[in-house]
Structures are given as structure tokens and as C-alpha cells.
Simulated scan of single mutants.
Amino acid sequence: MKPNISSQMLKGILQGVMLMILFKKPDYGYGISKQINRYGLDDIPKGTIYPLLTMMEKRGLVEGKMQPSAEGPDRKYYFITSDGIVVKQQFIKEWQFLESAVNQLIDEGTIDENKRND
């Protein structure tokens, strides 16, 4: 059973996740959404992705370009910029630090729990 991750927590990491996805290859909004779903983050409202892409574009982290689509009208594809790559790398470092700190707390809590049960 998948845990119910709070929307606040997801919003805090969504930009970093999207930058990592776009670092692999440019994509359009719905394509990014499908990739996010592939990683099990399917509780993210689709209406969250487009405003975040717009904000990221205004900050210079991604660049949007209209491109023809074989399946219908032109689509706006997003490309990560050099600033976006820097922010992605910073996100990864911050995530790894937080992951380590939280895992340490969890491990210590488990040890304390086991001592209490002895």
C-alpha cells in the first residue's frame, strides 16, 4: 500500500523532480506528468505542473519552445537551462543531506524502540 504523502511535502520537491526529468530529455507538460506518475507520484494534481513550469520558466530554469506534434497541435516542450542544471544539482545535494539526516533519526528511533521493548 502506497503511503499518502502530504501535498505540502510533494510541492516542496516537485520542482527538483521536474528538473531531473527534464535533464534526461525535454518534454511537454502532460509528458512530464506521465513520467512523474511512472515514479509512483501519481497523486500530484495535473493543475500543479503547469503553473510550476511557468514559474520555472520565469526564473530561467527551463525554456519552453513550441514544437510540432505527430499526434495533433503543436506542443510546448520544456528544456532545462544551465541555471536549471545548477538548481537540479543543488536540489540533489540538499535531498541527500535531508535523506541522511532523516534516516539517521529513524534508525536511532528504531534502536530506542527496541531497547524499550527489551
Rank of each mutant, 00 (worst) to 15 (best):
K2H: 10
P3W: 05
N4L: 11
N4C: 08
N4K: 07
I5F: 11
S6Y: 09
S7E: 11
L10G: 01
L10V: 13
I13S: 04
L14M: 15
Q15M: 07
Q15T: 02
G16M: 06
L19D: 01
I21T: 13
I21M: 03
I21D: 00
L22N: 01
L22H: 08
K25H: 14
K25D: 10
D27A: 03
Y30N: 08
K34G: 01
R38I: 15
R38D: 02
G40E: 07
D42L: 11
I44E: 04
P45T: 08
P45E: 10
K46I: 07
G47V: 09
G47H: 00
G47C: 01
T48W: 00
P51Y: 07
M55N: 12
E57T: 05
L61I: 03
L61Y: 04
V62Y: 02
E63A: 06
M66C: 06
M66H: 06
Q67W: 14
S69F: 09
S69E: 14
S69I: 12
E71Q: 01
P73T: 11
P73K: 02
D74K: 09
D74M: 12
Y77L: 04
Y77T: 05
Y78I: 12
F79M: 02
I80N: 05
I80A: 06
T81W: 02
T81I: 05
D83K: 08
G84M: 00
G84P: 04
I85A: 07
V86R: 08
V86E: 06
K88Y: 02
K88G: 00
K88L: 11
Q89C: 14
Q90E: 14
I92K: 12
E94S: 08
W95N: 05
Q96D: 12
Q96Y: 03
F97I: 13
F97N: 14
L98G: 03
L98V: 15
L98N: 08
E99F: 13
E99V: 15
A101T: 10
V102Q: 13
N103I: 09
Q104D: 13
I106S: 13
I106Y: 15
D107V: 09
E108V: 07
G109T: 10
G109I: 07
T110M: 03
T110W: 08
D112K: 14
E113F: 14
N114G: 11
